[in-house]
């Protein structure tokens, strides 16, 4: 019986196989390591495999990782800089950290990147610029930190609190109550006192809060002014169209959010238009931005 000749798969099939293989790996691999995972006609000579990997890197399908120590370059589905950024965000999910604490947390998670501290610094700079992470300035004995959410203003107001206490102490003998001082302070800051804010129907307020927290969930940068797609928000909340539209318009009227109008609502299909928010006055909205960023 003649020996069956195994036909070599073409380049696109090989590339597909490599891409699938790399997608399943939880860390970057050298060409040698990757070759060990391939079988049959896909087990290419190492130099041919490197050629294919290089071509996939050029096309932006995979990314080259620097070698570990004196080893060989590695390849993976994620770009080193993007991976570091992802890890920084993950590291800050639980609580704000100083840059040093963050570097300690991330230390061993970066798969032997040669200069992790420098790369983490780059990543921090880039995420700060994007507004994905925020600076928590140093205050009193608390060191400067980084966080995903704006810092709690309370510690920064401690000096003000002390001064207010002094004012109270000073004016108490003159029969000025703390309430009167608070009221004067509110006036000074140009805000109405809490008791003057009209109370809303609690259900609507709950819904509005739910919408705001969903906005931040869908788009983590929403808290720093990124637009949230109303189509995504609607899908994610699963509310009845009428209720969702009405609540969104009300929130815009109350200046809780800013709406972005669709320029050509009649140019999209009816199905797509249904995902937009309609104010019943001929305006269709495509996205919302949180007002108090």
């Amino acid at each position: 019986m003649p020996k069956k000749i195994l036909e070599l798969p073409n380049e696109s099939v090989l590339s597909e196989k490599i891409l699938n293989g790399l997608a399943q790996q939880n860390q970057p691999k050298t060409a040698k390591e990757l070759r060990r995972l391939l079988t049959g006609p896909f087990k290419l000579p190492e130099d041919r495999l490197i050629e294919l990997l290089t071509s996939l890197v050029t096309k932006g399908k995979i990314f080259e990782w620097p070698a570990k120590g004196k080893g060989k370059p590695r390849y993976w589905k994620e770009q080193p800089s993007q991976f570091i950024s992802k890890k920084i965000v993950e590291g800050l999910t639980e609580k704000p950290l100083t840059s040093l604490e963050l570097k300690k947390v991330l230390g061993k998670q970066l798969f032997g990147i040669p200069k992790p501290k420098k790369d983490i610094d780059h990543g921090i700079q880039s995420l700060l610029l994007q507004g994905t992470i925020l600076q928590h300035p140093k205050v009193g004995g608390i060191k400067a930190k980084l966080g995903l959410r704006p810092p709690d203003p309370k510690p920064y107001l401690q000096k003000v609190q002390k001064e207010l206490d002094q004012v109270f102490k000073m004016l108490a003998p003159s029969q000025v109550s703390r309430e009167a001082i608070n009221k004067a302070l509110f006036n000074l800051l140009g805000i109405s006192t809490i008791s003057e804010v009209p109370l809303e129907e609690p259900r609507i307020l709950d819904l509005e809060d739910q919408i705001i927290s969903e906005m931040v969930k869908i788009e983590p940068r929403a808290s720093t002014g990124a637009l949230v797609s109303l189509q995504r928000l609607r899908k994610s909340l699963g509310l009845e169209k009428e209720l969702f539209d009405r609540t969104i318009i009300n929130m815009a009227k109350k200046s809780r959010i800013i709406l972005h109008e669709h320029s050509f609502p009649m140019g999209v299909s009816e199905e797509e238009r249904n995902y937009l928010v309609d104010d019943k006055k001929g305006h269709w909205y495509v996205g919302a931005v949180l007002k108090d960023k």
Binding site: G60, K61, F63, Q79, Q82, S126, L129, Q130, G131, T132, R221, G225, A226, L227, S229, Q231, R232, I258, L259, H260, E261, H262, S263, F264, V286, G287, V289
Partner: peptide, 30 residues
């Protein structure tokens, strides 16, 4: 335009999406 933001990001590879927004996306509000 804001109405083309999602269609743009949905049309590009994930890696290119990350590069397009490496410094974020910023909205010009009314």
């Amino acid at each position: 335009q804001s109405s083309f933001l999602d269609p743009l990001l949905d049309s590009v590879d994930k890696a290119d999406q990350d590069r397009l927004t490496s410094c974020g996306k910023f909205s010009l509000d009314p």
